[in-house]
Computed example of a mutant assay.
Amino acid sequence: MRLMLVAGSSHGHFTQLLARYLGTEPLQATRNKYANGETRFELLESVSGGDVYLVQTSADPVNDSLMELLLMAQTCRYASAQRITAVMPCFPYARQDKMKGWQQPISAKLVANLLQAAGVHQVLTMHLHAPQLQGFFDIPCENLSSQLLLVAWIQQYVPDWRQAVIVAPDNGAVKLATSISEQLSIPLALLHKQRNFSNEIEHMLLVGDVAHKVSIVVDDMVDTGNTLCFAAQHLLEAGATKIYGCVTHGVFTGQSLEKLLQAPYELFACTNSLPLPERVQRERRIHIIDVTSIFARHIQKKNSPNFMIKMQRAPTSELFDVDDLESSKNAQGEKSVQTRPHGTRRVSSK
C-alpha cells in the first residue's frame, strides 16, 4: 500500500519533520471553519487504496483538534482508503480515564469510541497517561515510549548521572521512573502527594534518599507545573545538590513556564509531541527532544510489505529500535536529541 500523510492543523511542524523522515509530503487539503464556527475539512488528492496516516495531536483548542481529526478520518473512509491510522502524539482526554463519581463520564473511552465510529483502523500514540487506556479500544492502539530519548538526554546533559537518583513526583510516574532507573542502573525515589479538600497539594512524602545527590524528576507531562515545582522544592529541602527534570508532553498551561523557571531546576526537557509556545522554545534552560524519528520508524515498519514476516521472526527490540536517522533542522531552533546505534547519542540545535 502507498503510504500517505494527511496533516491536521494542530502541529504542522511535527508533520513536516515526520514527512521528512518518511521521504514524502503531506497530501493537499482544505482546513478552515465555516461562518458559524463549524469545522471544514476537504481532501484535494485521492487516498483510494492508500495506507493513510492522519497526524493530529491534542493541541489547544483540544475540542477543535479532535473534531477535525474525526472529520479527516471519515473523509478518508468515504474516499476508499484501505487503512486509516490516527497518529496522535498526545492523546486527548487521557487523564479522564475513570469515574471519580457516578455523575461523571469516562471521557477517554468516549474519544476511543468516536475514533472507531469515524473509520480509524488503528491509533498510534505516545506515553498514555494510563496504559489501561489501550483497553478502551476495539482496534489496535499502540502506545510508543519516549524513554530511549529521555535516557539519552539524561546521559548527555546531567553531569555525574551515574551518581544521581531518578525521582517519580507522584504515583502515576512510578512505572516510567522505575524503567529509567533500571536502564541507567541508578537508585529510585518516590514522592507521594497528599491533597486537601480543594484538591490542592498540601504535603509531599519522600520515599528514598536524595541527600547530597543529583535528583532527576521524570513524569509523563507538565501542565500547570504545580506537581513538578512542589517536587523540586521538596527535593531541595531534602538535601539534593542539583535537580533536573524531563517529561514527555509539554502542555504548559497558564503560568507553568514561569513556575518552572522559578523552581530550582538546572535544566528541564520535554518532547515535541505538542506545539510549544515561542517563550518555551526560546528558554535556554528548556530542551526540546524530537520524537518524530520514533513515529517514523514505527510507520515505516507498519507500512513495509514484509512487516508481518519480520514481526514473526524478529524480537520486538529489533523491530522498534530508533535508527540512525538524519538529524532534523528545527526552524524554531529547537534542541533535538536522537539515539544512534551502539548506545551513542547526538544532540543537534540550530
Rank of each mutant, 00 (worst) to 15 (best):
F137Q: 07
T57F: 08
V167A: 13
V87Q: 15
K350L: 06
D324T: 06
E38D: 07
I299D: 08
E200H: 15
R282K: 14
T224D: 11
G12T: 06
P26S: 13
R282I: 00
R31A: 05
A86H: 12
L190Q: 13
I294S: 13
A314Y: 13
F252V: 03
Y93A: 11
I166Q: 12
V291H: 11
R20S: 04
W153I: 02
Y244M: 09
A108V: 05
D290S: 13
G50L: 06
A231S: 10
S349M: 11
H11D: 03
S65V: 01
L70D: 02
I166E: 07
A108G: 04
V151W: 05
N171R: 15
F320P: 00
N196W: 11
R279M: 05
V251W: 03
N199P: 00
I243G: 03
A296R: 12
G101N: 13
V280A: 10
G50I: 03
G101C: 07
R346L: 08
D220L: 12
L274G: 02
V217E: 14
E334Y: 04
Q262S: 07
Q132H: 10
H234M: 09
H127Y: 06
H212I: 01
S198G: 02
V52W: 08
H298I: 02
A73K: 10
A232Y: 05
P341E: 14
R340I: 01
V52D: 06
H212N: 13
R77W: 03
D220Y: 11
A81G: 04
F268L: 14
T227A: 12
S256R: 15
L176N: 09
G23K: 15
H287F: 03
V322H: 14
H287R: 13
K301A: 02
L228A: 09
H249W: 06
T241M: 12
S198H: 12
L228Y: 05
N199G: 00
K213Q: 10
T125F: 03
G135H: 14
Q255G: 01
A211F: 05
L18Y: 09
R95W: 02
K100W: 02
G23Q: 15
V217Y: 12
D170V: 02
F137A: 03
T248F: 09
A232L: 07
F41L: 05
S328G: 06
D321G: 06
N113S: 08
S215R: 09
I84T: 04
V207C: 10
D64G: 04
T178Q: 15
Q156P: 00
F136T: 04
D160L: 06
L228H: 06
K335H: 06
G208R: 13
R297K: 12
A108I: 04
W161R: 11
V158N: 11
S48D: 11
K302T: 01
S146A: 13
L3R: 15
Q255V: 01
T75R: 14
Y78L: 13
R285C: 01
P169I: 07
D321R: 14
A331C: 04
S273L: 05
Q56P: 00
F136A: 13
A29W: 04
L150Y: 09
M204Q: 12
A73R: 10
L144M: 10
V218C: 12
E258W: 08
Q16K: 15
F41E: 03
H287D: 08
H129I: 05
I139S: 09
I288F: 05
I201P: 01
V62N: 15
A211E: 12
A94P: 00
K213I: 00
L128K: 07
L17Q: 07
P131H: 10
N196G: 03
I216K: 13
A108T: 02
F252Q: 08
V6S: 07
K193G: 00
